[in-house]
Simulated scan of single mutants.
Amino acid sequence: MSEYVVEAINLNKKFKDTYAVSNIEMKIRKGDIYGFIGSNGAGKSTTLKMIAGLMSPTSGKIKLFGEKRNAYTSQRVGSLIENAGIYPNLSAYDNMDILSTSMGLKNKQKIIEILELVHLDPKSKKKAKKFSLGMKQRLGIAMALLGNPDLLILDEPINGLDPEGIREIREVILRLNGEKDMTIIISSHILGELSKVATRYGIIRNGRMIEELTAEQLEEKCRNYLSIVVKEPSLVIPILEKELHICDYLVHENNEIRVFDDVDSLEVSAVLSKHHVAVSQIVYQKQDLETYFLEKIGKEGVNHD
């Protein structure tokens, strides 16, 4: 049995003369909460639609649960992409009942259990058109769960929600993953919130996957550091290595040296001053998750999403 729930292999999607997704490679393990990150138009929704079976790739492969897509594997996938197709004049239970009937499912108790799982009252007669945005999103997730999927795909499920709505969706995601060992792909622009649930990340830019990493790897990359900005880093590095025995550092853009070793900024300043090095900045920093992602995503041109 494959260790991967989703494998995208050299995945491409072309619209007319433009590639929205180009040579995507993606691997998602069972039990992952996979945070899918990219700017608007980066190709997130297109990729998720292909995984969900809502759109066919131009070329490349998608394997689900170690197999090529077939009727059985597709039944194991639930998705909330764009809108959930909610009937505004019906209650949450009635919306679920109609969908359940169309899917050939007859377990009324299952509907009640799912609605309770996402904190919606199955007995309430309140019409969906009077729901808050958060309630509508939770109903959309409930509808995606009707087929008892092993993989749940959520595209921007917290977009536009207030803090309470975001918290409710976060609790649902963590409960599904923790209690049911459900594998979940979730895209979101709210990176700080995504970092509270994701166990792995995929970062897409201009239709290409530029990095996949675990939450632990990301945390390691977002370490505290001493930021030193000088005119010519190449001349300063040998001084830091020789006199302060600094070995864990990174030369960043804009002539910035990031030192991850435990060093005293005053000592660094004194050494550089002795060598007549002009320092325009020396300050302790911590790179937060949002800064890291934004640096990776960049501000280059975009494709269709």
Rank of each mutant, 00 (worst) to 15 (best):
T46V: 14
L250A: 10
N10Q: 14
G35E: 03
A71S: 13
L226G: 00
I62Y: 10
I190V: 11
A42H: 05
F260D: 04
K296L: 15
R208M: 12
A270N: 15
N107I: 13
E171G: 03
E211D: 12
T214K: 02
S273R: 14
N254E: 12
L218W: 00
A198C: 10
I24C: 04
E212Y: 07
N206V: 02
G202D: 06
V6H: 04
L117C: 07
H304E: 14
D288M: 09
I166R: 06
H275C: 03
E212M: 10
I153E: 06
E193L: 06
Q285I: 04
Y19R: 07
T183S: 13
E3L: 05
N70G: 08
P149D: 03
L240T: 11
A144Q: 09
V21H: 04
R258Y: 00
K127V: 11
A84I: 10
L146K: 11
Q137R: 10
R138K: 13
G78K: 03
M143E: 07
P122Y: 04
R258K: 12
N95E: 06
L174V: 15
V268Q: 06
A20R: 09
K221N: 10
T199D: 05
N23C: 00
L289N: 12
E25G: 11
E253D: 11
R223F: 02
E219S: 14
F260A: 00
I237C: 03
E295H: 10
P57H: 04
K16D: 12
I246Q: 02
Y225I: 00
V277I: 15
H276I: 09
S195M: 08
G202I: 11
A278Y: 15
I228G: 03
A52T: 06
R258E: 00
L272P: 08
R76K: 15
A144D: 07
F293K: 03
L174F: 08
I186L: 12
R29E: 13
S91A: 10
L161W: 07
I9P: 04
G31M: 04
K125E: 11
Y284W: 14
E7Y: 04
L226K: 07
P149H: 07
